[in-house]
């Protein structure tokens, strides 16, 4: 350590030029800052861990236990729940067979989720386009009209659909009143009802991200395309669609994931017969009294959702790399 070359050397300065001290102080400040940040995050971390994320691990543990006779579990290891997800023991000859009921529900869940995604695409993309091409003042109003249902109670929106399509609902009453039919058309408790309901409740989830990407669209590019004698169809397929694709992918994922895990809409509109995965899981904790199977099914559903999410991250990540 050397004294400053010129000027006085009051007590305060003697250590000032020591590079180690400065570095130590800086390190100390940074560490204290990070400690404060962790402390501030602690309540949120604790609550989410205790009442959302942490219990998921218990679900995993329960999926490997033996079902108790009146629900709950016995603490004995058993892989049966996981086998039961796809296979079942024949009650007469004890041979393993495909669990047709489960597989049908898996298939129905996937089918209805894809169908819902497709329907929201058909309705949502033109709607998003329509909103994005309004002038600025009216655009806010249209956007607000899409957002309101998004934040209103999902159960109430499902009930609204139900009142429309019930046997004694508005549509059937009107048709009978007009003398067009004599017996009400059975729409409730069908796959159609579930797809219609899910399309209705998840539609805003498609419109909003697609709108966001159309809004960013540079319409000069579109004009340039027309300038080069592209037809409308070619224009849409070659220029607009690729540019809007990120929003369409985001919207599709946002619709597909809650559809796959839907519980309220199939329960209200599908009734007891047309189950989806969410209802099958619930059944194991209610009448089924097979908590381990319910746990295994829940983890299976979560894994399916994670696959969809990872696919999304993969696609958007690649897109980001392309655009620099």
């Amino acid at each position: 350590m050397s004294a400053p070359p010129s000027g006085p050397a009051p007590a305060a300065s003697s250590s000032g030029l020591d590079p180690g001290r400065a570095a130590r102080l800086a390190g100390e400040v940074a560490r204290r800052d990070i400690r404060t940040r962790w402390m501030l995050s602690l309540p949120a971390i604790a609550i989410v861990t205790a009442a959302a994320a942490g219990p998921l691990l218990i679900v995993l543990v329960y999926s490997f236990l033996t079902p108790g006779p009146y629900g709950n579990v016995e603490w004995r290891f058993s892989p049966d729940a996981w086998i039961n997800v796809v296979l079942q023991k024949d009650i007469f000859d004890d041979t393993w067979q495909w669990a047709d009921a489960h597989l049908r529900i898996f298939w129905r869940s996937l089918e209805l989720s894809f169908l819902t995604t497709a329907l929201t695409l058909v309705l949502g993309v033109p709607t998003a386009w329509f909103i994005a091409t309004r002038n600025e003042r009216t655009r806010v109003v249209w956007l607000f009209l899409i957002t309101i249902p998004f934040w209103t109670n999902l159960l109430i929106r499902t009930i609204a659909v139900m009142e429309l399509i019930r046997n004694e609902g508005v549509i059937n009453s009107a048709l009978i009143g007009l003398g067009l039919i004599e017996q009400p058309i059975q729409m409730m408790f069908t796959d159609f009802a579930i797809a219609l309901g899910m399309t209705y409740v998840y539609l805003p989830l498609m419109v909003l991200p697609v709108y966001a990407s159309i809004e960013k669209l540079d319409f000069r590019l579109v004009e340039a395309g027309y300038d080069l004698y592209a037809s409308r169809r070619k224009m849409f397929l070659r220029i607009i669609l690729p540019l809007v694709k990120p929003g369409i992918i985001a919207g599709s994922i946002l619709v597909f994931i809650p559809s796959l895990g839907a519980y309220v809409t199939p329960r209200v509109l599908g009734g007891g017969k047309n189950l989806m995965l969410g209802n099958l899981i619930e059944l194991q904790f209610g009448q089924g009294r097979n908590w381990p199977l319910g746990a295994a099914l829940a983890i299976t559903l979560m894994a399916m959702v994670m696959v969809a999410l990872l696919y999304y991250v993969h696609v958007t990540g690649r897109g980001r790399r392309w655009h620099g």
Binding site: S41, V48, T49, A53, P55, L56, I281, E282, G294, V305
Partner: peptide, 27 residues
């Protein structure tokens, strides 16, 4: 750890509600 905090806080958005519901029922 910042990404971990961020992911954890947003975790309830990523897991289907029915799964969280079942987990909480058990817990």
């Amino acid at each position: 750890g910042m990404t971990a905090i961020y992911t954890l806080i947003n975790q309830p958005l990523m897991v289907p509600e029915i799964v969280t519901a079942v987990a909480l029922l058990i817990f």
